[in-house]
Amino acid sequence: MKPQSAFPLLLAIALAPMVQGIINRTKAIVAGRAGQPLMQPYLDLAKLLRKGAVYSETASWVFRTAPAVGLSAIICAGALIPFAAFPSLTHFGGDLVLLGYLLALGRFAIVLGALDTGSSFEGMGASREIAFAALAEAPLFLALAAIVRETGSLSLTPALGAVSINVWNHAAPSMCLTIGALLIVFLTENARIPVDDPTTHLELTMIHEVMVLDHSGPDFAIVQYSAALKMWFLGAIIVAIAVPWHVGNALADAACALAGIAALGIVTGLIEASMARLRLLRVPTLLLTAAMLSALAFVMVAK
């Protein structure tokens, strides 16, 4: 394990909440407002960490451990994802399957915590979250399969590192399809419009937010921070495919990828500003479309 392989994880831990800030600022500018400062998510986290936590009488230890389990699962998942030229903390053949299931484990912990509160709203949110997450797994794995098939490597670090201008030159259509599919997965997994509205305050329409209603103080900070990390890691995968230029200098490449993540935040903000939420019943169709996109990408690569 080389010392620079800790870099992707440290970078994510430091900068992950910033993406949220970029999205919010983009939405504000499109709406003609000045918007909150870019560092606002950090300030929110600091505020939450200073507060005390309140626990319901019906909640057991499952509810209390859920945020910690969620955060550790996401950090473990992050240990598998490279950033630009920097390799991930650890990599081995088939680690992309582990990535999928670590993401699922984090979600599982939060869902169990939501069910543990005994609130009917949280149960409803949990059931929706799981339904959409299960559907989002197919496009995620199919898209990764397309990348694996194209680069011939079963591990994330070599596979994403091998996506170069050359790959784009002879497989541009399937790379575009992969990015499209992963973008829909990104929006779904991170509970953004058009799947879920992070700013809604109506329990009946909430998906992700309703599950974490009962968390407060430091617990809620951990939940929010895990969500930010998840967004960063999924974004890093998309950027690794969408920004295929390798200058040779590791730091220049990293700057390129950082610009890519900022661009992804802006794109997400623009999508949120220009679209309404889909009706819940139409979300499966969207995810099905994503699965079609990635299946088509896989077929085009495999032929």
Binding site: H170, A172, P173, L177, T285, L288, T289, M292
Partner: peptide
């Protein structure tokens, strides 16, 4: 070949749009 492939993919995708909209 890439351009042709792209057009064919777009054709397939519009097919899916027709089925799904």
């Amino acid at each position: 070949n890439q351009v042709i492939d792209s057009i064919l993919i777009l054709l397939t995708l519009t097919g899916f749009v027709l089925l799904g909209s």
